[in-house]
Simulated assay, not measured.
Amino acid sequence: MGPSDECLLYAELLANIRQISLAASLPTPCDASTQLALSADGQTVQLKHGRSSFHLTLPAKASLGAKLLPIQDQQKGRTSLAWRLPLDATSLSTSHQADPVPWSATDLDPSSGVACRQCRAVVVPSGAVKSWKDLPSENWAEMMEFWHCHKPDHKHRTDHGEESGEADDRTLAARGYGASSAISAQEGVGFVDLTTLLLAESDCQNVTLGFFDFRAVALTLLKWQIACASASCVAPGIPECLAATIVSTISRCGAAKSLITPLPETIRAGEEHGVARGAIHIWVLNSSIVYSSNGTSRITPAIKLLYRPISRGEAHKMLEEINCDAQEINLPAQAIGKVVHHLEESNALLPPTERLFKEWRVGLLTRWEFKA
């Protein structure tokens, strides 16, 4: 059977309204042979069209058991069909759960070494890192000032006659409360961010991946380029790490739009591979969906978004505007090209009528899923 004879099935869990959205795209108009049936357990659907039959596992269990789903009169003769299936009462408690943070500190094995995922060369020897610690959010210093209405150890005057404000500022900075405070690498300690691991240079060897962080005096290793023993049997990729960053950005500042731009120190290497010419403008529609498609073999948690590739110049111009409503997210230049490829592949899983919105394309960015 050629690609032109294939039927596309796509289902999306709509947990907020307790329904499953199901769409089918047919190679030829709907006719008397077209039928859609739900299995007795409510987990799968079977589409028959012409002499072909297609199956899809739903992202959650539907409450209608062993039922032939009707095709409405207005859908007859069309190539695009759609249904809404009621969600089973037990599905919300047992449905797909996604952890938005890939490889948190508690997931990583303290005794584990770190290796390059591609060539398996050891980057951090086993035992070099004694403990893993999660880094705070990007606005941690500002939040400390907000949480403490009265600064810790507040005194009106010191023994040396200093004004209380000056003494307090120095005390707070020494304890890590000041806005000028910065995280620096510690030997034997691995710091974990949403997308990277931060390690002391003395704990690393054979480093040809990642980059040096001069502010933290540390080596920054990208999670999607390394292998490390963890509680999850699945290692995160670029989409999962980016999705975690987007979710964190929305939680922190409520911005639905983001500009994915290349890290300056990675642009030259990206240009050598022909992938550093642009950026990505994204607009999040739903930060937590679960979908399935007969174009892929798994049920996938994802962020549903609109995206459009743009030039770096256009991205910088947008960021300089006073009324810019997008937050900037930096990724290595080569990673941006892979994100675009991932979004294009996900766009092809959607029904043709749902792939475009004006100048935007619709994409599904895979979220991290913990698998023990």
Rank of each mutant, 00 (worst) to 15 (best):
Q72L: 15
F357L: 05
E166I: 14
S95T: 14
G50C: 03
C253G: 05
I282F: 02
R51P: 12
A315Q: 05
T106D: 14
G165A: 09
G337W: 03
H156T: 13
F214C: 07
N16A: 12
E201M: 02
D31A: 07
V207L: 14
W83E: 11
V124L: 09
A227M: 09
C324H: 02
R355D: 01
T266A: 02
L221R: 13
A15N: 00
A326N: 08
W360M: 15
V290L: 08
I238Q: 13
K76D: 04
A174G: 14
H273P: 00
I280Q: 02
K48M: 06
R117E: 15
R170S: 10
T106H: 13
L58D: 11
Q75F: 10
L108G: 03
A372S: 07
A105W: 00
G50S: 06
A200M: 00
A302Y: 07
V284I: 06
S131P: 11
D153F: 12
T79A: 05
C7Y: 01
S91A: 15
H55S: 12
A333F: 08
L9N: 13
T245Y: 06
E201S: 03
S311K: 08
Q334D: 13
Q118A: 14
T171S: 11
A335Q: 10
L135S: 02
P351A: 10
S39N: 14
R252S: 13
A269G: 09
L38Y: 08
S25G: 01
N323C: 06
G313N: 05
G77T: 04
R298H: 07
H55W: 12
C241L: 00
R367A: 09
S202H: 09
T296D: 04
T94Y: 08
S181G: 07
D193R: 06
A229S: 05
E187N: 08
I183V: 07
N286T: 02
C116L: 03
L198D: 07
R312C: 05
E314P: 00
T57R: 10
I299Q: 08
A216K: 01
S131D: 12
M144Q: 15
L364K: 05
H316G: 04
L285S: 06
P27L: 01
S137T: 13
N16I: 00
D73F: 00
W147F: 15
P110I: 14
W83A: 14
L356N: 08
D107N: 03
D73T: 12
S111T: 12
T44I: 14
F191E: 02
T300Y: 02
L349F: 07
I20S: 03
V339Y: 07
D99N: 08
K371D: 01
S293Q: 09
G77E: 06
E328P: 09
I250A: 02
N294Y: 10
M144Y: 10
L343Y: 12
E359S: 11
S292T: 07
L199Y: 12
C228A: 08
G42E: 05
E354H: 05
K67D: 00
S112V: 01
V339C: 11
I303E: 03
K61G: 02
A216L: 11
L343H: 12
E272G: 15
W360E: 11
L85K: 07
P352C: 04
F211G: 12
N16F: 06
P239Q: 10
A231W: 00
A229N: 05
H316E: 15
F191Y: 09
P152G: 00
R355M: 05
E138K: 08
E369I: 01
K151R: 14
G188L: 03
S181D: 10
S53A: 06
R51H: 07
P100H: 04
